[in-house]
Simulated scan of single mutants.
Amino acid sequence: MTSNVCVAGVGMIPFVKPGANAPYPVMGAEATRLALADAGVGYDMIQQAYAGYVYGDSTCGQRALYQVGMTGIDFAKAAGYPDVFAHGMLVMGYLGQALTDAVSPPQLRAFSTRFVAITQLGARLTCEGHVSEFVDHDGERCAKLALTTKDENGDLKLSGEAVIAL
């Protein structure tokens, strides 16, 4: 399959070592604005955008695009989604909060999750867990918990496990 690609503008800003200038998302947003101005187009004409990073946090390129307006319902629909959706880390945070509401944080020995499906904004989420087995963890008697987060339709959004001291 072949595709036509058009790089219509260039935006350059001085790059300096971490901490010596504005945060990377701010620098990236400025470079993006300059590239759009150079091309003479608005972000509403962009069909796809790609952002990478070397030094910054793992989503700093994505954050840079948000700062120039590449977010919201129009952008989500252009990417093929029915609406904007919640970041997976938010759903993970809900599950982690539910876990530490049920179990004292000092008892927590391990917590891991796997993202299963996109969560639409406004979804009513239910976080659940049950003991899947009893285990020895670093010489300590523990319980391994199977964890899930589902939406109001029962669709699985996140699965995970935790190990807690007994």
Results as ranks from 00 to 15, higher is better:
residue 38 D to L: 05
residue 35 A to N: 01
residue 64 A to T: 03
residue 74 D to W: 06
residue 15 F to C: 14
residue 65 L to F: 11
residue 18 P to N: 01
residue 11 G to V: 01
residue 72 G to C: 11
residue 67 Q to H: 07
residue 18 P to R: 15
residue 73 I to T: 13
residue 76 A to H: 02
residue 72 G to Y: 13
residue 55 Y to C: 11
residue 39 A to M: 06
residue 31 A to F: 01
residue 40 G to T: 04
residue 37 A to G: 08
residue 73 I to Q: 15
residue 24 Y to D: 10
residue 58 S to M: 14
residue 58 S to D: 15
residue 16 V to R: 14
residue 15 F to T: 08
residue 50 Y to A: 13
residue 22 A to E: 14
residue 22 A to W: 08
residue 67 Q to L: 14
residue 44 D to G: 15
residue 25 P to S: 12
residue 51 A to P: 12
residue 30 E to K: 06
residue 49 A to Y: 00
residue 72 G to F: 01
residue 68 V to G: 02
residue 41 V to S: 10
residue 39 A to L: 09
residue 32 T to C: 08
residue 57 D to N: 10
residue 12 M to S: 15
residue 14 P to N: 14
residue 52 G to E: 10
residue 32 T to Q: 08
residue 64 A to G: 03
residue 45 M to D: 05
residue 12 M to W: 09
residue 23 P to K: 02
residue 38 D to V: 10
residue 24 Y to C: 08
residue 26 V to K: 03
residue 25 P to T: 05
residue 43 Y to I: 14
residue 49 A to N: 05
residue 66 Y to S: 10
residue 63 R to V: 07
residue 39 A to E: 01
residue 46 I to E: 00
residue 22 A to F: 07
residue 74 D to F: 14
residue 39 A to W: 03
residue 39 A to G: 07
residue 58 S to H: 13
residue 65 L to H: 00
residue 33 R to N: 08
residue 66 Y to K: 05
residue 13 I to Y: 00
residue 38 D to P: 07
residue 33 R to V: 01
residue 47 Q to K: 12
residue 59 T to N: 04
residue 38 D to R: 09
residue 32 T to D: 00
residue 19 G to L: 07
residue 41 V to W: 01
residue 41 V to Q: 15
residue 21 N to P: 04
residue 60 C to S: 11
residue 42 G to W: 13
residue 67 Q to P: 10
residue 64 A to C: 10
residue 66 Y to R: 07
residue 61 G to K: 07
residue 32 T to W: 02
residue 69 G to D: 05
